[in-house]
Amino acid sequence: MASEELYAIADFCLIPMGLGEPSVAEYIAECSRVLEKSGLKYKMHGYGTNLEGSWTEVSKAIHDCHAAVHAKGAPRIATDVRIGTRVDKNIEPGTGNDSKLQRVQDILAKDAKP
């Protein structure tokens, strides 16, 4: 039986360390450039990034962010990664995070109705 690669919906927070400055924005911008080139759907937020694609592509994108941020001068990086997969539902590529959020918004919209 051929195994199909898992579709992964991830949230990761890459933290450059050892820089001696309070802002890491330049390093995070570098990671954003890497993600843009990856072609994967991603969305940055205040404390991390949502990312989705095949397990291999997601893992490679996070790896490539590490490599780029090190190349920019960060001597250390700590990254927290949370990855979810499903096999009980077909997820249209690029819609995983949006559909999860929409489901919650639909529930809250019912609360708002009189």
Rank of each mutant, 00 (worst) to 15 (best):
A71F: 11
L6F: 05
G96I: 00
A68C: 13
K113F: 06
A78S: 15
K60S: 14
A78F: 14
Q102F: 11
G39S: 00
E36H: 15
K100L: 13
L40D: 01
E36D: 13
I15E: 12
V69Q: 01
V87S: 04
D88E: 10
D98T: 09
N97G: 14
E26W: 04
S38P: 02
Y47N: 08
C65I: 09
Q102R: 10
A112E: 08
E21F: 01
K60F: 02
T49R: 05
I83N: 00
K43W: 05
M44I: 01
E52Q: 06
Q105D: 06
D106K: 08
G96Y: 00
Y42N: 12
S3A: 06
S23I: 05
A112V: 06
G20Q: 07
K89E: 13
K72W: 11
S59N: 12
K110I: 01
A67H: 14
A2D: 09
V104F: 10
E30T: 10
F12I: 02
E92M: 13
D11E: 14
A8Q: 01
P22D: 08
M44R: 06
S59K: 13
Y7T: 03
E4S: 09
V69A: 10
N97C: 12
P75S: 00
E5T: 10
K113N: 02
R33S: 13
C65G: 12
T56G: 10
L108Q: 07
V34H: 10
V104W: 07
E5L: 14
K89Q: 12
E52H: 01
T79D: 00
V69D: 11
V104M: 08
P93M: 00
P16E: 11
T79F: 11
I83W: 00
A25Q: 05
H63G: 03
E4K: 13
A109M: 07
D111H: 12
D111L: 12
M17D: 05
G46Q: 09
R33I: 07
C13Y: 04
E36A: 15
W55I: 13
R103I: 08
N50F: 03
A67M: 15
I83D: 04
D11Y: 01
E30M: 12
A29F: 12
S23P: 00
S32F: 08
N50A: 11
S3Y: 06
H66M: 14
L35A: 11
I9Y: 03
G46S: 13
T49N: 06
T95A: 02
D11L: 08
A61N: 07
L6D: 03
T79G: 03
E26D: 11
E92R: 12
K100P: 08
E5K: 10
L6W: 02
G18L: 12
P93C: 00
A61P: 10
V87M: 10
A67L: 15
A71S: 14
S54N: 01
G18R: 00
